[in-house]
Amino acid sequence: MPEAAIVAARFDVERGTRASRVAAGLGLLLLVAAVAMPWWGERAGQRLLTEFLYTLALAQMWNLLAGYGGLLSVGQQAFVGLGGYSLVAFGLHAGIDTFLVVPLAGLVAGLVAVPTAAVVFRLRGAYFAVGTWAVAEVFRLLIANSVSLGGGSGLSVTQTVRGMPIWWRESLTLWCAAALGVGATLGVYWLLRSRHGLALTAVRDSEAAAASLGVSVRRIKWCVYIAAAVGCGMAGALIFITKLRISPDAAFSLDWTVVMFFVVVIGGIGTVEGPIVGTLVYFALREVLSDYGSRYLIALGVVAVLFMLWMPRGLWGFVAARCELRFFPVQRRLKLATETQP
């Protein structure tokens, strides 16, 4: 028997990058600073940060749907609105503690998403998009026709936080927003690194190919849809805790999806970092252009269209492709050190 050459391959499966470790450290510091903001920040800044964090949560959910699940929903306001109205039903009517309503709202949105999915999943691609929108309209009209939920003109939910010291309320709001924003980001990140993430990426790249490899495309999409509904529902409840007044037009406004869309397209669709970058850009643009009224939204729309045409992977996609920079590495990289021994 000839002496076989033994190939000893030494390799490391590298999942982290130096950037990711730096980012993790930096992110932790920022998070601590954010959570501690009630002790050091001023109230205006704290409110802005709250808004930033729940916008990030919404954007991550939409990114999960459109960027990874290939499900272009134009109707996520359905779940934001349902979350908001959970506050009316559980907080106002049932008297459940306001901040406990937030997870409850996620549950409600998730439960409603199940039959909703059964209907809208009959539509594919472009038709799915408009179908989700029609469903959101149905929810809006149903609630506008419910007198007990305030009808078309809406109602105040101030009662739900009455008696709570304002410092305490605003701090809890911020912490909830932080939990949602960070939770959504880490949740998507964790999902992508899991076994399901691989399947999800396969589905995004080629549905047919993924199906032929035994990935249940339909089930994965269903899970993504439900998860995004839960996230949007929780964010919806929190949003209306900060606004203290709710109406069907505000709760089920297309603007929620417009913001998600804008943030994700600018930041980079199909990346975990994209929504973070996009939310930053969105808030910066809003601060700069806020004096211009509807012209500001025109500018946002034009910017989004230009991005889709010339930078379809968004700011983060553009940067990451050139600098090999990944704060949230989702792929496994093989580092080989091969030696051939006689």
């Binding site: 272009l72 134009v74 417009v258 869309f261 397209v265 729309g301 269209v305």
Partner: peptide, 10 residues
């Protein structure tokens, strides 16, 4: 879809 959505906003 995204581009026409942008057009709608504009």
């Amino acid at each position: 879809l995204l581009v026409t959505f942008g057009c709608a906003i504009v």
